[in-house]
Design a protein around this nucleic acid. Structure first.
Lengths: 215, 215, 215, 215
DNA sequence: GATGAATGAGTATTCATTCAT
DNA sequence: TATGAATGAATACTCATTCAT
C-alpha cells in the first residue's frame, strides 16, 4: 500500500542520512576516535536513534563498506558483460571503473581493511556478513574473469590468472593508500589520478604478452 | 665514562626489550585492542616502567616504525651504493631488499599507515618525529635514485621518475595488505613471496624501455 | 449512559489485557529486566498505548499487586464471615484460601515486597496508593480477626493476637520464597503444596492452646 | 615474607572497605538503583578502583552474601558440634544463632534471594560460585542435622526431616521480610526480635512430638 | 630506577517516556 | 484513541597515565 511504501522509503532515507554523517565523521577521525555521539550530532539525531537503524558501531561502519562494494560490483559487472570488447579494451574500461569507485568513496581501502579484523566480524549480523561476502566474491570474480579471458586469448601473460587480478587490486589499493598517507588525498585529486594512471599503464604494459614475445 | 656508558647500554637494552614485547602484542591485537598492561606483562615489567622509556602509547608504537625504517634505510642505501650494477640489476637487488624488509617486520605497512594519522602525530615528541621524517625521506630518496638513474640511462621509461618509485612502493604495500586481508600473512609466507615476485616481475616488465621501443 | 458505559467497559478490557501481558513478562524476567516494549509487544499494542492506561512502569507493576490483593481480600473476608465455624475450622479454611491466592498469582510475595520500596512508592499515584493500602489493611485485619477470635475463645495461645497473624503470613511468604529460590516453583507445584501443608500444620499445632495446657 | 604479607593484608583491608561501603549503599537503594559511582564515592575511592577488587557489580553484591554465609556457617556448625545438648536445647541454640546472623546483616534474606537469579549467576566467577554453593550446602546440612537428630531421638515429629529445616528457614526469612516490608527493620529491632521469638516458639511447640502423643 | 595501585575521563548502549501524526 | 519513531539521560566498565613508596 501507499502508506506502507512511504514509510519504507522514509526509513531508508534515515538510514542514508546516518550513513552519510557516519562517513564524514569516520573519514575525519577514523573508527576508534569517532564516537556515536559525534555521528549522531553530525546527523542531527540523538544517539539512541542510531541504534534504531544499526545494531552497533561496527555494523554502522560496515554498512559504509557495503555501499562501496555495491557500487564496485555494479561497475565491474558492467565491464565484464561487454562481450564485444577485446581484453585490452576491457582492461581500459576496468581502470576507468576503478577511478570512479575511488571517486565514489576514497576510504574504500581503509574500510575494506577494517572489515577483515576478527573483532569486527564478531559484531556483525549474519545478514550483513552474507551480503558483504557475496558482493566481494562476485566483484573479485568479475575482475578475475577479465584477466582470465585475456590469458586465454593470448593477450596477457599467464602468471596464474588469479594472481593478475590480485595484483591489479593490490596496485589500486597500494596507490590509494600511498596517496592517502601523503595526505594529498583530498587536496589534490589530480595527482592521485595521474599516479593511478601511470601505475595502471605500467601494469598494462607488464601484463601484455607481446612484451615477452618481443624478447 | 665507563659507568655512564654501561648505564646507557643498560637503558638501551630495556628499550629493546619493551619494543620486542610491544611488537608481539601489537601484531596480535592491533593498536587499539592492545593495552599498556598487555605489553608490560609481555615484557615482564610493570606498566609504570614503560613510561620511563616511552612518552606514551603512540610513541611506543611509533618506535616500532622507526626500527623498520632504520632497517629499510640501511638496505636501500646499500643497493644504491653499488655503483657497478646496471639499473636492471639494481632493481633486482631492490626487490630482494624489500623481501627482507617484509621479513624483518610484516607489519611494516600497517605501522607506516598508522603513523600518518594526525592523532598519532600530535602525540609524538619532536625528536622522534624528526628521526622518522629523516629516515623516510632518505629511504624514499634512495629508491627514487635507482629509478632516476634507470631513466637517465634509457633503461626505464620516463614517466615522472618520482612516480616510478611511488608506484614501486605502492605495489609492495598493496600486495602485503592484500595478503594480510586474506589472513594468509602468517600461515603461508610462500604464497606472499610468489605473489610479490609476480607483481615485481610485471612491474619490471612494465617499466623497461625496450617494450616501448619494440612497438 | 449506554455509549459512555460501553467506552468505560472497553477501557477496562484494555487495562486487563495489558495487566495480563505485564504479568507474563514480569514473572519471566523480573521488574528490571522487563522493558515496556516487551510488555507492549506481549499485549500486541504499541509502547505509547501503555501510557494511556498506566502512568508509568512502576504503576503498571503495582497494578498487578492490586489485583492479587483484591483476590486475597475477597477470600479472607469470606472465611471471616462464616460465623458458624470454630476458630480451628476457620484456620483450616484460611489455609485453603492461601493456597488459592498463591495459585492465582505465584509472584504474590515478590510483588508485595517490591511494592514497599520507597522508590516505587514515590512513583505511584495517590489513588492507587490508597487502594492498595486499604486492601492490605482490610485483609490483614480479617486474618487478625480469625486469630483474635481463637484467642478469645481459648483455642489459640495468647501471644499478641496480632503477632499470630503476622507469623502466619510470614510463614506463608517464607515458604513460597524458599521454594522460589529452589526454582521448584514452576516445575513442581506439588512439592510446594506439600511443604506449605506441613508448615501450616506445624503452625496450627503450635498455636493450639491444648499444647500448652497438656504440659 | 613480611612485605608480601603486609601487602596481602592491605589488599584485604581495601576489599573490606569496599564491601562495607557497598553494603551501606545497596541496603539503602537496592541493587539496581545503586550505581558503582555511589559505592565508589561512599568508599572514598574512584570507580576504577572497585574493579581492581571485584570483577563487576554482580560479583561485588554477591560478595556481601558470601560474608553472611560465612558467618551463618560458623554459627550453625558450632551449634551442631555441641554433642552433649539435647535436640530441644540445640534448637534453642540454633534460634539464638539465627538472631545473631540477622544482627550481623539484616539484608541476609534479600541478598540470598537476589543471588538466585539466573542473570546474577551468569556474571559470577566460578571461584565465587563454588564458595557460595559450598557454604550454602554445608549450612543447610548442619541445620538439617539438628532436626534429623531430633526426629531420630523421638523428640520432633517426623514430617520429612528435611522439610523441618526448610520450614524453619522459611519462617526465619518470612518474618524478616515481613518486618522489612513494614520498614520497622531499622527503627525497631526489638519488635522484630519479639516477633521472631514468638514465631520460633510456635514452631518449637509445633514440632515437638509430645503434642501428638498427648492426643 | 622500578613498581603497581589508584585514578577518572571517556563511551557504547539501553530503555522509560514523549509527542507529532 | 493509538501509534511508534525519536529522544537523551543514565551507567557499567576500560585503560592510559600518574605518583607515592
Amino acid at each position: 500500500m501507499g502508506i506502507q511504501e512511504r514509510k519504507e522509503r522514509e526509513k531508508e532515507r534515515r538510514r542514508q542520512q546516518i550513513i552519510v554523517a557516519a562517513k564524514r565523521v569516520f573519514s575525519e577521525k577514523g573508527f576508534n576516535k569517532s564516537t556515536m555521539e559525534d555521528i549522531a550530532s553530525e546527523a542531527e539525531l540523538s544517539p539512541g536513534t542510531l541504534y534504531l537503524y544499526f545494531k552497533n558501531k561496527e555494523e554502522l561502519y560496515a554498512s559504509l563498506s557495503l555501499r562501496i562494494l555495491q557500487y564496485l560490483h555494479i561497475r565491474v559487472e558492467h565491464v565484464n558483460k561487454e562481450t564485444e570488447l577485446s581484453p585490452e579494451q576491457k582492461l581500459e574500461k576496468l581502470i576507468e571503473a576503478m577511478y570512479d569507485v575511488y571517486d565514489f568513496d576514497p576510504l574504500i581501502i581503509i574500510n575494506m581493511f577494517h572489515l577483515q579484523s576478527s573483532e569486527t566480524l564478531k559484531n556483525l549480523s549474519p545478514r550483513l556478513m552474507t551480503q558483504i561476502e557475496e558482493l566481494s566474491r562476485k566483484s573479485i570474480g568479475a575482475i578475475s574473469n577479465i584477466f582470465r579471458e585475456g590469458v586465454v586469448k593470448g593477450v596477457f601473460i599467464e602468471k596464474h590468472p588469479v594472481a593478475l587480478s590480485d595484483i591489479f587490486w593490490s596496485l589500486f589499493s597500494g596507490v590509494i593508500l600511498w596517496e592517502a598517507s601523503k595526505k594529498i588525498m583530498n587536496e589534490d585529486k589530480d595527482y592521485l589520478k595521474k599516479t593511478l594512471a601511470i601505475a595502471f599503464e605500467i601494469f598494462s604494459q607488464g601484463v601484455k604478452i607481446e612484451k615477452f614475445s618481443s624478447k
